[in-house]
Structure formats: structure tokens, C-alpha cells
């Protein structure tokens, strides 16, 4: 009882913390000065049609590198926790034998798998033009592999391929950042390649390259996470 009262008081307190945010917030009439600069000069400077990508990959590129590092650390943690082969016994020890996928699932997954791969690649290659980018595309690709695991839960993915894809794309990302340091204005500056015409696939300097590498890295990392979680179940 006393626990419940404490919880209710905590929630009421939290809603009072959030209340001023609600009361003092009107729809902004214009952008802040920094965003104004990003919006008006981003297209001209970098040649990206999608300005969110310009912020993610170039203006805040270091943040994105840190984010990729956090994702890598989390993947390493998951692998460390679950990677050891069935030491503490399997989760499904108590459950009965697993059924195979139904006909509908098997056919649907086989049909969707190549389409999802293609769609994921499309999303990260077009990250500088349309909504989307490396993270979203990587997740779509990982979901294609999750679908494969639904059909056949014992399927083994090649860990050496996954790990080398992940390591190579991560290293290439940092390398592109360093090339930017030498040939353009600074670390992760994509302007060492020609920026081209806005709206073309081959435009915006190295941004499509960086986002594709992020897509491959995120995709292989998430497949690794799902695979580690699956191997213990």
C-alpha cells in the first residue's frame, strides 16, 4: 500500500516537472540562429537535398561517429554476455520442441528477403536525397535476416563475415573522416569529393559513401545482436 502511494506521488511529481514544458511552449515562428544557418547554407555548402542528413553526417558528424561507437559497445556487451556457447543451459530447456514455420511464413519470408535487402540498400544509398539513411537502411536489412531466423531458427550466420564487414566499414568510416581532415576543411568533412547537382544520386560529396558505410555497419551489428540473442534461446 505504502509502495503504491509512493509511486503515485512520484508520477504526480514527474507530471509537474513536465507541466511547465507544456504551458510555456508555443509553436515556434522561426528557427533558431544555428538551425537557420544549417538550413539556408547546408544545401549550398554540402549539396544534400535532405538537410537532416547534412546535420547528422557532416555538421554533427562527430556525434554520429560517437553513436556508432556506442552501438558497437552495446553489440560487444551483448556478445560478451550471450556469446559463450550454452554454458548456463538453454532458456528453452523447459519448453517443448519448437515447431517449424508455417507454409505462409516460409513462402512470405523467402519472397520478402531479397526485396528487403534491396530496399535497405536503397534507403541508405539515397540517405542524402530522401527521408532515411544509414541507420534506417541498416535496420531494414537486419529485419530481412530476422525473417530468415523466423523460418529456420537453427540457421547459422557466418560470424567471420559479419565481424569483418562491421570492422571494415567502421574503419573505412574513420578513414573517410581522416581524408576529410587532409583534403577538406576538417574531420568528417565530406567536401573532398565534388558536391555535384542537388538531387542527383552522385552528389553531396562523400555523404552517400559515409551513410552507406554506416548502413552496412549498423546492419551487420544488429544481425549480430539478434543472432546472439537467438543462440541462447
Amino acid at each position: 500500500m505504502i509502495k503504491r502511494i509512493i509511486i503515485i506521488i512520484t508520477l504526480i511529481g514527474l507530471s509537474f516537472v513536465l507541466l511547465p514544458l507544456f504551458l510555456n511552449m508555443e509553436d515556434a515562428e522561426r528557427l533558431s540562429e544555428l538551425s537557420q544557418t544549417y538550413v539556408t547554407e547546408g544545401a549550398e555548402e554540402l549539396g544534400t537535398a535532405n538537410l537532416v542528413t547534412a546535420v547528422v553526417v557532416s555538421y554533427r558528424g562527430l556525434d554520429t561517429l560517437g553513436e556508432v561507437a556506442v552501438l558497437f559497445a552495446a553489440t560487444a556487451g551483448v556478445t560478451l554476455l550471450l556469446g559463450t556457447k550454452k554454458k548456463g543451459g538453454s532458456v528453452t530447456d523447459l519448453l517443448e520442441e519448437r515447431r517449424g514455420g508455417s507454409e505462409l511464413l516460409n513462402t512470405g519470408a523467402a519472397l520478402l528477403f531479397p526485396v528487403l535487402l534491396l530496399f535497405g540498400a536503397y534507403i541508405f544509398v539515397h540517405g542524402h536525397l530522401t527521408p532515411g539513411g544509414g541507420f534506417q537502411g541498416g535496420v531494414v536489412i537486419a529485419s530481412a535476416f530476422v525473417l530468415l531466423l523466423f523460418i529456420e531458427s537453427d540457421r547459422e550466420f557466418s560470424h567471420s563475415v559479419l565481424h569483418s564487414l562491421e570492422a571494415l566499414s567502421g574503419a573505412a568510416y574513420v578513414l573517410i573522416g581522416l581524408i576529410g581532415l587532409w583534403f577538406a576543411a576538417g574531420f568528417l568533412d565530406p567536401r573532398f569529393l565534388p558536391s555535384g547537382e542537388i538531387g542527383r544520386l552522385l552528389s553531396a560529396g562523400a555523404i552517400p559513401l559515409i551513410y552507406s558505410l554506416i548502413g552496412i555497419k549498423v546492419g551487420s551489428e544488429l544481425i549480430g545482436v539478434v543472432d546472439s540473442l537467438r543462440r541462447r534461446s
Binding site: S32, L34, S35, A54, E67, T75, L81, L82, F135, L222
Partner: peptide
């Protein structure tokens, strides 16, 4: 404003990573 959108993009990915870690 593109900056909060970019920040949320970051936050979603970190959220996925943290959820995976919690699940493991």
C-alpha cells in the same frame, strides 16, 4: 528544425542498443 530530428535519430539508435543490452 533539422537539429532535433537529427538528435532523435541518434537517440532512437542508442535506444535500440540499450534495449538489446537490457534484453541480454
Amino acid at each position: 528544425d533539422p537539429i532535433p530530428s537529427a538528435l532523435v535519430l541518434t537517440a532512437i539508435v542508442i535506444g535500440v542498443a540499450v534495449t538489446a543490452l537490457m534484453l541480454s
